[in-house]
C-alpha cells in the first residue's frame, strides 16, 4: 500500500512539476540572453489560459486529430509511472523496462505525426515528415546507448540499471559510462525537440519540426500536447540524472531516504535544466540534413561505450 502511495506521489511530482521545469529553462535562457524573462510558473498560467479557451479545429480533420492529444498525454502519464523519479522502489515500475518506455514515447510521436498530416496543411506535413525522419534515425542510437548501460547493469530494467549505478560509485569515472551518457544526452535533445535539433521557441514555420506538427492545435488540445511535451522533457532529464548520476535516489521507502530523494531530484534537474539552457543559448540550430550527422556521432559514442564494456570491466 505504501508502495502504491509513493508511486502516486512520484507520478504527481512528474505531472505537476513538468511545466515548472520548462519555466526554469525558459527563465535561465532569458537571463543568459540579457532578458528578464517570465516567472518560472508562467507555463502553468499558459496551460490554464489554453484550457479555458475554445478549441478551433480544422474542417478537414478526422477523429484522429481530436484523439491524438489524449493518447499523447496518456502515453506520457503511463511513462511517468514507469520511470523511477524519487525512489526505485515504486510499485508499478516492473511493468516495463527502458525499451518499452522508448516505444511508449514513439507511440505518442506516431499519433502526433498522423495528426500533423490530418489538417492537410503543408506545415503539418513538413513537421510530420521531419519528425518521423529524426525519430527513425534516433532509434538505433537510443537502443545502442541503452544497450551500453544495460550490459553493465545486466538488465534493461530501470530499477536494476539505477541500482547498478548506486552500488558502484566509481562507475562515474568509467569512460564507457561517460560515453553512454554523452550519447544518451544527444538522443534526449533529439527526442524532446531541443536545440540544436529543433527549436522549441521558434515561430518561423520553415524551421519548425515539433511545433509545425502541432500548428493546428488550440485550446485544451494544445494544452494537453504542451503539457505532454513538458512531461517528456522532465522524464528524459530524470532518466539522465538518475541512471548516470544516481546520487540521492531512494532505494528504500524510508521517509528520510525519500526526503533526500526529493532534494537530490530537484538539484539534478536544476543542474540539467541550467546546462540545457546554456547549451541552447550557445549553439545554433543545425540544418535539418546535418542532424543525421549529429545522430551518427551520438551513435558512434554509444557504440564505443558498448565496445569499452568488453575491454574495461
Amino acid at each position: 500500500m505504501v508502495e502504491f502511495s509513493i508511486t502516486f506521489v512520484q507520478w504527481l511530482v512528474v505531472v505537476i512539476g513538468a511545466p515548472m521545469l520548462v519555466g526554469v529553462i525558459r527563465k535561465t535562457k532569458a537571463r543568459l540572453q540579457g532578458r528578464r524573462g517570465a516567472r518560472i510558473w508562467q507555463p502553468y498560467w499558459d496551460l490554464r489560459k489554453l484550457l479555458i479557451k475554445e478549441a478551433v479545429i480544422s474542417e478537414n480533420t478526422s477523429w484522429i486529430f481530436r484523439f491524438t492529444p489524449y493518447i499523447v498525454f496518456g502515453t506520457m502519464l503511463v511513462s511517468a509511472l514507469i520511470v523511477p523519479v524519487l525512489t526505485t522502489a515504486g510499485a508499478l515500475q516492473p511493468i516495463g523496462n527502458i525499451i518499452l518506455l522508448m516505444y511508449v514515447f514513439l507511440l505518442g510521436t506516431f499519433f502526433l505525426a498522423l495528426a500533423g498530416l490530418d489538417a492537410g496543411s503543408s506545415f503539418g506535413g513538413m513537421g510530420a515528415s521531419r519528425e518521423m525522419a529524426i525519430a527513425a534515425l534516433a532509434e538505433p542510437t537510443v537502443m545502442i546507448a541503452i544497450f551500453a548501460i544495460a550490459l553493465r547493469a545486466g538488465s534493461t530494467g530501470l530499477r536494476e540499471m539505477i541500482g547498478r549505478s548506486v552500488s558502484d560509485p566509481l562507475l562515474l569515472l568509467n569512460p564507457g559510462h561517460l560515453l553512454a551518457f554523452a550519447s544518451f544526452f544527444i538522443v534526449a535533445l533529439a527526442e524532446t525537440g531541443r536545440l540544436p535539433v529543433d527549436n522549441p521557441s521558434t515561430h518561423l514555420e520553415l524551421t519548425m519540426i515539433h511545433e509545425a506538427m502541432i500548428l493546428e492545435y488550440s485550446g485544451r488540445y494544445l494544452a494537453l500536447i504542451e503539457w505532454a511535451s513538458a512531461i517528456k522533457l522532465f522524464l528524459f532529464l530524470t532518466l539522465l540524472g538518475n541512471i548516470f548520476v544516481p546520487w540521492g535516489i531512494a532505494v528504500s521507502l524510508q521517509p528520510a531516504a525519500l526526503a533526500i530523494g526529493v532534494v537530490a531530484l530537484a538539484l539534478k534537474l536544476g543542474i540539467l535544466a541550467v546546462s540545457l539552457a546554456m547549451l541552447e543559448t550557445a549553439v545554433a540550430k543545425l540544418r535539418l540534413f546535418r542532424v543525421p550527422e549529429l545522430l551518427t556521432g551520438s551513435f558512434m559514442l554509444a557504440l564505443l561505450a558498448v565496445i569499452s564494456f568488453f575491454f574495461l570491466k
Partner: peptide, 16 residues
C-alpha cells in the same frame, strides 16, 4: 478536463 471546468467548446474553421 470535463470536471475541471476546461472549455469544452469547439469550433470548426479552415486550416491555417
Amino acid at each position: 478536463l470535463k470536471i475541471s471546468g476546461a472549455n469544452s467548446g469547439r469550433r470548426f474553421y479552415e486550416t491555417w
